[in-house]
């Protein structure tokens, strides 16, 4: 049997495992189709330079790549579907008027960099909303994501809003060679480590004040008021206004989940430009769904349009659902 084993992190689904996945997928599918989203499918692999145009610097350790024998070009098994849809919208769909509402189901492949989470193939279902700006577009997809996971059986969850532009604006004033270590400490909410990294980078006082405040700026809506008092930069004002506008727009939707904020969230794909969000629930230990605004990604493929979207992590959703005894 060992000769027939699967690569680490790959698995088959059978019978009831498939039924469970189908139930979850059907619930999400009906939610997004009702909301007027048109299905698309994208290929399992593409040329690396095309994917990298959207995703920016790819971490080669996290990709499955190979050389296409006929052309010698490097292909990458898709680590993300959003960039593929951006390409599709800018090419085949370039004559289609906006707003464009697209939905997809498919797997992405990412090689985990640490051994505790060996999942490699991640089943996703998601949407992209092209041509609708903030805050209306954001509220539409966030409420839709919440509706979809609820219909799939998730009883209680938290919607967290974040905006990486606060950190990005402050980082822009600091020597780029220090960005990685500063980002890592921010992502860990490691106040002391961040302090040391900022000191080592000789960060200017204004940028430093912003970055030092970020690890503590998460929680309920009071975070926004606290941030407004502490952070007096132009970028902070814009980001806070953006988050408030989305939260206010969400008030006018059918969303009934608790909302939280995290101004220090810097993880995730580099293409996000505005409000991003995740849906958190007990069980999986990671977000059930995540997404956000990416107003410059389509431009990189030649069609300048604003856009936002999300992807639901099917396996995490199933875990969170089980936890609730749904």
């Amino acid at each position: 049997m060992n000769a027939l084993r699967l690569p680490l992190g790959m698995r088959d689904l059978y019978a009831h495992e498939v039924s469970l996945r189908e139930d979850v997928a059907a619930a999400i599918r009906s939610s997004v189709r009702e909301a007027g989203y048109t299905p698309v499918t994208t290929p399992a692999f593409e040329y690396e330079d095309v994917v990298a145009r959207g995703l920016g610097m790819l971490d080669l350790r996290e990709l499955v790549r190979f050389v296409e024998p006929t052309t010698g070009r490097i292909c990458v098994v898709r680590p993300d579907i959003t960039a593929q849809i951006a390409r599709l919208v800018a090419t085949r769909l370039k004559g289609e008027p906006t707003p464009l509402r697209l939905c997809y189901e498919g797997s992405v492949v990412r090689v985990p960099r640490d051994r505790s989470r060996p999942r490699r193939q991640l089943a996703q279902a998601g949407v992209e909303l092209v041509g609708v700006g903030a805050p209306a577009g954001d509220a539409e997809v966030i409420a839709l994501a919440a509706r979809a996971v609820a219909r799939a059986g998730l009883g209680s969850f938290l919607v967290e809003l974040a905006d990486g532009s606060l950190a990005a604006a402050a980082l822009a004033e600091i020597d780029p060679s220090a960005h990685e270590s500063i980002r890592e400490r921010l992502a860990e909410k490691d106040r002391d480590g961040l302090d040391r990294a900022l000191g080592a980078a000789r960060a200017p006082a204004k940028a430093r004040r912003v970055l030092e405040a970020l690890p503590d700026l998460w929680g309920d809506a009071s975070v926004l008021a606290r941030a407004r008092r502490t952070l007096r930069t132009e970028a902070a004002r814009a980001a806070l206004a953006g988050l408030e506008a989305v939260a206010a727009a969400l008030d006018r939707t059918d969303l009934r989940a608790s909302i939280a904020f995290d101004l220090g969230e810097v993880r995730g794909w580099g293409y996000y430009t505005g409000v991003r969000f995740s849906i958190l629930a007990e069980g999986p230990g990671v977000a059930v769904a995540s997404g956000g605004r990416y107003d410059t990604l389509l431009g990189r493929y030649g069609r300048d349009e604003r856009a936002t979207g999300f992807a639901i992590d099917m396996e995490s959703l199933e875990l969170a659902r089980d936890r609730k005894g749904a």
Partner: peptide, 25 residues
Amino acid sequence: MARRSSDSEAGRRSRPLRRGTEGAG
């Protein structure tokens, strides 16, 4: 923490929207 519901259809029914998670639980 996110509010719990005893109803299995939770999340889709009308509940008062409440900002914030502090204190709950």
